[in-house]
Each structure stands twice: as structure tokens, then as C-alpha cells.
């Protein structure tokens, strides 16, 4: 695992790179409320944005601003009351429940804030789960899991349960699990929330260097301003609305931007 990279290094590496600005995600008019009658609360109101291939888009905002709700609708785990989400040209909310599950399995990788690794399985087995759900043969899935653990620098921890790993290591296992099915979209929820500053920066640096590619789009929910410099763009939310989209600190040049 090549880390840490400083934002400056990354900028040097990528400043000359020209990434074709093709739309990976298009969200239009997303609206979602919870509760009924007097308890009704609108969490997200008429949110529209686009995210591009080869981009890291941070979603930031105060607690209760609707970040998680919005990203849940975008990633196909929460049905919007109104609006439309298109990923790689597919209107995901027109799919049936099972079709949507298969779509998530093949297209989206999730890294949950609490990781949600199975403590009774080994690290490799945890990483292999998406391939196992995709009906890959067991040995092939485990072999691939070990390869991804090697990529995230945990080859020697493949056979231990996740509870014996540090927070940063568990985070990397969760990233390996999210990546193993080669998703086009990676969604990370507060990836540095439970990590110390250096580890958090290392993780995001790793995601930036090893995970991001021209095809992939990465959405990150975060409160952690220490990692804003790794973003290509930052989408700011308040009270369920997008209040602005700014360039981040990585200075990736998008063609035509």
C-alpha cells in the first residue's frame, strides 16, 4: 500500500491528467420525507446534481442536513418520494427490488461508517462476500479476496477475524470488500470518523491513488474537513438542499470544466 501521499503529491501526479467528463450519476429533483401528518419532516428537497467518472465527490454538511438520505437514494437503498436517479444511464428506481439488489451488487460498493464486518468470519471471507453473493466458486472468491487484501496491505491478516484488526485495518477490509466486485460507484460513509488523523488521511489517500480510476466514481460523506483536500468537488448540503458545489483540493482538471 503506497501511502501516505500528500495532497501536493497527488496534485502533481494528476494535474497534467485530463479526465473525460462523462456522467456517472445523474440525480434529478430528489425529494424524501419521513413521518406522517404533524411528524412529517422533509429530509431532502429537490436535490439535483451530477457526478462524473474518475471523480471523488465529497458530500458535506452539518448533521441532519440530509447527506445520508440523499446518498442512500442515489445508491439505491432508499426510494425517493420524488425525483430520479440514473447511474451509468440506468434509471435505478425503475428497477424491481431484486433487480435493484443485483444492480447494487454489480455496480455499487459500500463502505459503511461502522464497517459492518462479520466478526465470526475471517477477514478474507468478509472481503469475499460480494463475489460469493454473485455465485463465484468459493475458492475463486477467496483467492480474489486475498488479492484485494494484498492491495490494501493486509495480506498477512487474511485468516484472522476482523475484531483482531485495528480501526484503520478494518476500514481497509471494508474498502476491499466494497471493491472486490469491481463496482463503478463507490460510496463511503464517514470513512475517517473513527480513525485518527494520520490513518484517516492515509485511507483517503489510498482511495484516491489505488481505487479511483477513469471509470470509477467515488462519493464520500464526511464531516472531516482535514480530508477535504482530497476531493475533486465538494457538494454542500444544508436543510435537505444543495447549497453549493465547489472544487475540492485535488485540482484534477476535467475537460471542459
Amino acid at each position: 500500500m503506497d501511502m501516505p501521499d500528500t495532497p501536493g503529491n497527488i496534485a502533481e501526479k494528476t494535474v497534467a491528467k485530463t479526465v473525460a467528463k462523462t456522467v456517472a450519476i445523474r440525480a434529478e429533483g430528489l425529494t424524501k420525507g419521513f413521518g406522517d401528518g404533524e411528524t412529517y419532516t422533509r429530509a431532502v428537497s429537490d436535490v439535483s446534481f451530477e457526478a462524473y467518472h474518475g471523480e471523488i465527490l465529497f458530500v458535506v454538511g452539518p448533521s441532519g442536513s440530509g447527506k445520508t438520505t440523499m446518498l442512500s437514494m442515489v445508491s439505491g437503498i432508499l426510494r425517493p418520494d420524488a425525483g430520479r436517479v440514473s447511474i451509468e444511464g440506468q434509471d435505478i428506481w425503475s428497477l424491481s427490488t431484486d433487480q435493484l439488489a443485483h444492480f447494487r451488487l454489480n455496480t455499487i460498493g459500500f463502505v459503511f461508517q461502522d464497517f459492518h464486518l462479520f466478526p465470526r468470519l475471517t477477514t478474507a471471507e468478509n472481503v469475499a462476500i460480494p463475489l460469493i453473493i454473485k455465485r463465484h466458486p468459493w475458492d475463486e472468491a477467496m483467492s480474489e479476496a486475498r488479492r484485494f487484501l494484498e492491495i490494501v496491505g493486509l495480506a498477512n491478516r487474511a485468516d484472522v477475524p476482523p475484531v483482531k484488526l485495528s480501526g484503520g485495518e478494518q476500514q481497509r477490509v471494508a474498502i476491499a470488500r466494497a471493491l472486490i466486485a469491481q463496482p463503478d460507484l463507490l460510496v463511503l460513509d464517514e470513512p475517517t470518523a473513527s480513525l485518527d488523523g494520520d490513518t484517516g488521511r492515509n485511507i483517503i489517500s489510498f482511495v484516491r491513488n489505488q481505487v479511483l480510476n477513469d471509470k470509477r466514481c467515488i462519493l464520500i460523506i464526511t464531516h472531516d474537513s482535514r480530508i477535504f483536500e482530497f476531493a475533486d468537488r465538494i457538494l454542500n448540503m444544508e436543510d435537505g438542499r444543495v447549497t453549493g458545489i465547489a472544487d475540492g483540493g485535488s485540482h484534477v482538471a476535467h475537460e471542459g470544466v
Partner: peptide
Amino acid sequence: ENLEKFGALKAIGMTSRE
């Protein structure tokens, strides 16, 4: 005890039938 993990499996793409 494993409910959240089952929920995570759902999010990852496991169907209810599975």
C-alpha cells in the same frame, strides 16, 4: 446480534430470498 450485518448484506446486494 447479526441483524445489522444482514442489513449490510442487503445493501451490498443480497436479495431477500437469499
